[in-house]
Computed example of a mutant assay.
Amino acid sequence: MTAVDDATLAGISGQGGIYLSGDISINELGGPVEDSYFGSCEELAKKCGARFAYQLKENGGWMVLDEIRGNFAFEGLTLRVRSINSGFGGDGEVFDGDVLELGLPDVIRFHDVRFKIAGSSMARPSDPGFRQTDIISAEMQGNVIMEGNLLVFPAGTP
């Protein structure tokens, strides 16, 4: 590698984005009973696993992915900004803006995965006044292989 000055760099064009690979295990079925970070899944009635909470709007309720367990492996997951100005049955031209594109490579695997999608009054179950309504519970035994792109559109118009 060599240093490039600003004048030379100004004449170079490229493509921005992020390329990720990894393997994540969260309270994997058949794995260790005790996990010091995500808690013990030894008791069937006890909640365990990871939790992602996101607030839909300022001072609004929370949507959560809760009790996430299993093994997730991916190679070549990409993250970039994509301009949408055509397609989508004519809606792309009307939208004419940027979206976040999560590229799912040929190798993204889920193995023995469990999770819940829920609505929650608080981000953490330990917060005072916590209430949660489970919307859907999912369990996938075996392997699931995914590919394609996931586009995340902003809620408002650009």
Score class of each variant (00 low, 15 high):
30 G>D: 04
38 F>R: 02
18 I>R: 15
67 E>T: 09
26 I>V: 15
56 L>P: 00
51 R>E: 05
58 E>Y: 03
63 M>K: 06
19 Y>Q: 13
28 E>K: 10
61 G>C: 02
34 E>L: 12
40 S>W: 04
49 G>K: 01
39 G>D: 08
52 F>S: 08
57 K>N: 12
22 G>R: 10
49 G>I: 01
20 L>C: 07
29 L>F: 06
30 G>H: 05
56 L>G: 10
20 L>S: 06
17 G>Y: 00
37 Y>R: 06
61 G>E: 08
70 G>F: 02
56 L>I: 15
37 Y>F: 15
65 L>F: 14
57 K>A: 15
39 G>E: 05
44 L>H: 03
34 E>P: 02
42 E>S: 15
38 F>E: 01
52 F>D: 07
34 E>T: 15
35 D>T: 05
35 D>R: 07
20 L>T: 03
21 S>F: 10
54 Y>M: 11
25 S>E: 13
47 K>P: 07
42 E>I: 10
70 G>S: 08
33 V>D: 15
44 L>C: 01
70 G>N: 02
36 S>T: 12
61 G>K: 06
55 Q>I: 00
53 A>H: 05
48 C>E: 07
50 A>F: 12
63 M>R: 07
56 L>W: 15
56 L>T: 15
46 K>Q: 14
28 E>Q: 14
38 F>I: 11
40 S>R: 04
40 S>C: 05
39 G>S: 10
52 F>Y: 09
37 Y>W: 12
63 M>C: 10
40 S>Y: 04
36 S>R: 13
19 Y>A: 12
21 S>Y: 09
